[in-house]
Every structure is written in C-alpha cells, then in structure tokens.
Design a protein around this nucleic acid. Structure first.
Lengths: 215, 215, 215, 215
DNA sequence: AATGAATGAGAGTTCATTCAT
DNA sequence: GATGAATGAACTCTCATTCAT
C-alpha cells in the first residue's frame, strides 16, 4: 500500500509516475527495472518515490495492482455493453475478442501483464499474480453466475474451474502474439486480434462439454 | 559454445561449476543471477569463468542447454524401459508420470527449466527456449512416429501438433506444483507426483480426439 | 557537459575533484587514468563521479576544457597587462615568454595539455584537441587583428595561418622541455623559461617574412 | 632485448608474432594494446610471449625497434637508388617524397610510428623514441656528410640541426594525413603523397638559408 | 513534502603475469 | 620449449536506499 502522501498528490503527477513506471517495469520486469530511470523520466526526485512507497517491491506491487484494475474496469465496461440476448457461447466469444483487442491496443498494460507472468522470484510472483487473478475473477465470476441462472450453463457446472480455465487461456491469447516462445497451443505469434478469432472459437468449442446443458 | 578450455577441464571441476551455476541461475534467473556468486561458490576465480565462456549469456545458454540435455537423456532412458505392449494412451500416461516424477526429484533441473520459462527478455528467451524445445521434441517425436506406424495413432493425425501440445503441457505439469501463480488448468500447487496422476489422465483423455483411430 | 548536480556542488569540492582529475589524467592520459583513483584521492564515493558526469569520456573532456579555459583566461589577463606601445615583434616575444613561463609554473595544466596532445585514439583526440585549439585561437586571433589595424602586420597577411603556426609552435615550446622525445626544433629538453628565450626570438625572426610590412 | 629463445624460433613464427603485435600496438598504443589479443591472433600461447620477452614493455620496445629498423632499411635501399647527380635540393625532395610514399603504403609501420609519437608515459616514451630517432639519424646523417663534402652544403652548416629538423618534420608529413588534429603546418589531413609534394617543396625552400652555399 | 547528493556494494569484464605440466 | 589454466586486482558503471536540507 502506498503511503498517504501518495494519495494526496495531484492526479496529474500520480498518473505520470504510474505511466512511466508501467513502461519501465513492463519493459524490464521487476528486478531489472530501474527506480532511477522511473524518477528521471517522471520528472520527480529519486527520494520522492520513497515518500510514496516503502520500497521497490511495494512500488512494483502497486503498479501491477493498478494495471490489473485498469484492465478489469475497462473490461467491465465493455462487457456491460455486450448483447446479453445472444447465446452464452456467442457472448463468451465477444468477451474474449474484446479482451484480446484491448490488450493489442494497450501495450503498456500488456507489458506489465507479461512482467508479472514472467517474474521468477516466488516472493515477488505470489504478490503480483494473486492480485491480478483476483481482479480478473471479479470480472468473470459474477457474469458466469448470471448465465447459470439463465440456464445457459449447466446447474452442476463448476464455475470456479471455468473461470480458472479462462484465466489460464487469457495470457496465451493476450501475450503470445507479442512475446516469442510462449509455446502457444496454436501458433499465435504476430497474429492480429482479427486473426485470433478462429482460435478463440475453437477454444470455446473445445470447452463446451464443461458447461453445455444436456439435452 | 564454451571455449575449448572448458572441455579440457577435469570432470570434477566442470561438474562443480555446472551444478553451482544451475542453482544460481535456477534460483535467480539470467539477469539477476550473479557470476560473482557462482565463482565464489564453485571455488574458482571470477576471471576463470571468462576463460570458459565468452560472456554471461553464453554461460547461461550453456547451462540451459546442458540442463535440457540431461532431462532429455534421462527421459530417453526411462522411456526405453517402458512397456510398449500396452495401449498408446497407457504408454503416454506412463511417460508423463515419469516426467513429472523426474522433475519432482530434481530441483536443480526444475529450477533451470523455470528460469528459461520465466525469462522476460525476448532475446534471451528465444535462445534458451528454442534449445530446450528441440531437446524435448527429440524425445517425443520419434516415439510418436512409432505409435503411428503401429496404428495406435491415426494416420492423418498431425504429429507436430501433438508434440507441441505436449511441450505446452509439460511446463504446467512440471513447474506448477512448485511455482505460485502459474494459473494451471487445475490447481496443481503443492501436489505430489502421485496427486498429479488424475490430472494427467484427464489431460490425455481430453486430447483423445486428436489421435484416436476412428472405429 | 557535466550534470546540473556538478554545478550545484560547493566550490571547494568541485575544485578538489577537478584538481585531482587533472593530476590523474595529466599523469596517465585518458585510457590509463583511473576513475577509482580520482574518487579515492578526492575523498568521494566512486558512484558520485557518475552523478556529475555521464561517463569517463565526458569527464575527461570536461577536465580538458576546463584546463584550456584556465590557460586562456590567465593568458588573456597577462596579455592585457603587456605593453602595447612596443613593436609587434617585441609584443609577440613577450606573449610567448609569458606562455612558456605560465606552463613552466603550472605542472597540472601542462600535464593535461600533454595528455590531449598525446592521446592516440582519434575519437577522443578530436574532441579534446578541437576544444583546446578554439580556446587558444580565441586569445590570439583578436590581438592579431589589432596589430593588423595598427599597420604592424601587413594588410594582406593571413591571420589564420599565423595563428595556426602559433598553435603548432606552442606545444613545442610549452611541452618539449618536460617531455622526452618531442623532437623539438632545437633541443629544449630541460630548458628553463629563461633558457628558452633565444629559441623564441629565433622562431619569431624566422616567421618575419609572413607578417612584416614591406618597406 | 628478447630472450635467446626468441631468436631460435623459426622465421615464419617470428614474423607472424611481429606483424600481429605491430597491428595491435599500432592500433591501441602501449598501455591499451593487449597481449592476450596478440597471442590469440598470432596463434601462440599467452605464456610463450613471456618466454620471448621479459614483460610487456620489453615486447613493445622490441616491436618499435623492429619497426624503425624496417623503415630505415627500406629507406636506405630507396635512397641508394636515387640520382646523386642532381642538386642537393632535388635529392632531398626525392628523399622526402619516398619517405611519405613509404608511410602511405605501409599502414602497419605508420601506426606503430604514431603509437610511439603519442605515448604519454615518459618512461615508455624515452625508450621507444630514442630508438626510432637513432635509426632515422643513421639514414640521414651520413648522406648529409656526403653532400657537405661535395660542397652542396655549406662547410659551416650544422648537420645535427639539419637532421633534427628533418626528424621533426617527418612525423608531420608522414602522420598528419592520417591522424586528426595533429595541428600540421599546412593542412595535410587526408592528402595523398602526390598532393603533399608542394608542401615538401615549400618546406625545403624555407630551410634553404640553413644550408645553401653563399655565392 | 520534496529534494537530490551521497553512498558503497556489486555488476560483468579484461588484464598481465605465473607456473605446473 | 611450449603450453594454457588460473589468478585476482583493476576497470567502468549502476543500483536502491538514506538523510540533511
């Protein structure tokens, strides 16, 4: 948690610092990312960072948290705009398309997501991964419940498992096109969001037995 | 490629350096792993490392290559001992069980594998991932061909795709129990090899349409 | 250019660092001069140097620039004090005597001047030589113009050539007595400023056809 | 002086080592030139260099000596071929032309000459400069004596001074075209030997009062 | 609250030299 | 006589963090 000083800062400065930090940590990860660089590029004193955050790890954790929050909030907005009168499968397709498009359009968020996925140090990982996953679950789980109430998802389907599968698939869809060597299910490297659509359809179809009501 | 000096070293020293390096890089990854530490713990002078390897990246690449080779060679041995008179599905189950057991029993090899999977820098990643994947493919592909000749795998099945899927699944099975936040298909954290078996069975069953002959 | 940090330092520290650096670079030149040594002898932390200068070359360039500036400023002062009512030849003699005396009395400035003249690396040389030459030209050229207006120098004399010849002669006069093997016009090794005077007179006389008005 | 071991080496190896050393020291000078590099590129063991020379300085001194010797010997050959029936001035012009051409055609010898001229460390300089100058004097002085006997040089001319002036002028003519910022008398940077000829003629003419018999 | 100078450990890398084989 | 592995000090440069102002 940042200090109270951080929250008393004016919004413009907070956003500037956050954006610069996202770029630096996104590009170089936690241990290689440099606080010196962040302070310089944000135009603040090196010492100020330590007025806002107790140390580097807390700062990194905050950046990751904030990034996940941004992704979640935007996805919540986009999902709210989707058509709920279509089938669950069509809706899920729309969700994943929106998600991949969002990540394609937001290199900063994408880079930070990659940095959290690629962090080797367990102490650091556990902090940032849990944060991110909780954000994403908060988007997915409630809507899954809605669909279950409607009957598009079998009553005995395990919503936790389904959400987990989504969480697992998202990094592949969202990161693989941009990061070499992610060993993706199908070759996604360099694919545009439009080109990913068939892969998404196939993925959804493959999971159908998990949720489809038995006729 | 290490220098000729490296290969002229006596075996004991080479193994000592390699083991220390696997631990250091395995624990901290490429950029955070320290050559100072490796030299100190291996009981050699810092400068000596540069008699063996031209720079840090070459050293890391060599450690990864050697680790993959070890895994491959041991897996080849174990696979050769397996029963080929059972069904393909049973055989594959045995293979994956052996693999997860091997990784569970070899924390050094596991840590280095994690370090290559978690490396953020694309330039470094592409070097070490390609090396590792080639080693693993060399184990899997030839045996898949055998099973196809026998008729246990459909003639029109795409062996490349099947091997790729295995390459993708292996890190999950092998690393997820030990590293937090890998977003595994099912929660593998802390599972012992024995406890992973149901997951392996389920995975194989899920892939059956890819290879099973049509009756 | 040094960082803003450097210029905000208190004068005493700045002078201490500069003096130590002049001695180190003067004694050993650019590539052999040691930043470690400078930091230690100046009583500051190794890292602090990099708060003041972005890298070694910038530091060296600054030291050379500052040295040339010192020489120029002192020479400007001394030249302003000279008698302008004598002939041009007498005045020029006085200038060169002052210059050689100044260099004889200032071993630090002399050593740095030698370091720039003896730098082998073309990239480094071109940086520091151009700086020094510009400083010296700034001293010589304007006064030559004055003498030309007075008629002591022929109207069609090429002032650029004359200044260049001075620039060429100065290192001989200023450095040869102290550095072995400079192949000087006449043997200047070990000569005191007083003993150099006949050489200076001879040099001026030799150049007379270049500037003397035709009678 | 190299060890007796050096002189017992077969000629091919000696020449290979010498050539590689000339390139390395010529490119980087004494202190920055690397024995490691020389050993590697000459295809010999690092330790062998220390069988031939007691340390780096002795090695460098030998390389400089050998380079000066090569220059001297070739110049002696070329001078012997010159026409002695022309005037002294024409002959001197031919000598300097040959010299600049030789240096233009021999980048290795040129680079080593530069390295000795640019060495800052007095202890090193005095060793290598004296050696080189003695070689060159050995070429020039005896022929000057010949011309004096013939009457083309005044009986009371100071041959030592004349030879010294030549030694001073040669580095300008030979090196200035290739090294930036040598503050040459006239701008020689990048000039071809042919383009240097007018400068040489001018130089000789300028020195005429020193030697020409009074009529 | 903000600053930014200072720190010193540590990074990767190069080096001339030694000496056992 | 030749080798080349070993050394460890030295190199430039970066870093997160502290603290007096």
């Amino acid at each position: 948690m940042p200090t109270s000083t951080w929250f008393r800062l004016n919004v413009a400065k907070r956003e500037r610092v956050l954006e610069v930090a996202m770029r630096e940590f996104g590009d170089h990860g936690y241990s290689t990312g440099s606080l010196n660089t962040i302070a310089r590029e944000a135009g603040i004193a090196k010492g100020s960072l330590f007025q806002y955050f107790s140390d580097k790890l807390e700062f990194f954790a905050f950046v990751c948290d904030e990034t996940s929050r941004r992704i979640r909030e935007e996805m919540e907005r986009r999902i709210a705009d989707l058509d709920f009168d279509q089938s669950f499968e069509e809706w899920l397709f729309d969700v994943l398309c929106e998600w991949t498009e969002y990540m394609a359009d937001h290199p900063l968020e994408r880079a930070v997501t990659a940095a959290t996925n690629f962090e080797l140090d367990n102490a650091v990982r556990s902090v940032v991964r849990d944060t991110a996953n909780q954000h994403y679950l908060q988007v997915l789980h409630p809507t899954f419940e809605l669909w279950q109430e409607r009957g598009d998802i079998r009553a005995d389907a395990d919503l936790d498992v389904m959400a987990t599968l989504m969480l697992m698939a998202l990094p592949f869809l969202a990161l693989a096109p941009y990061y070499d060597g992610l060993d993706p299910i199908m070759d996604l490297r360099g694919r545009t969001p439009a080109e990913q659509r068939p892969v998404i359809r196939q993925l959804i179809a493959g999971l159908r037995p998990l949720y489809a009501p038995i006729k």
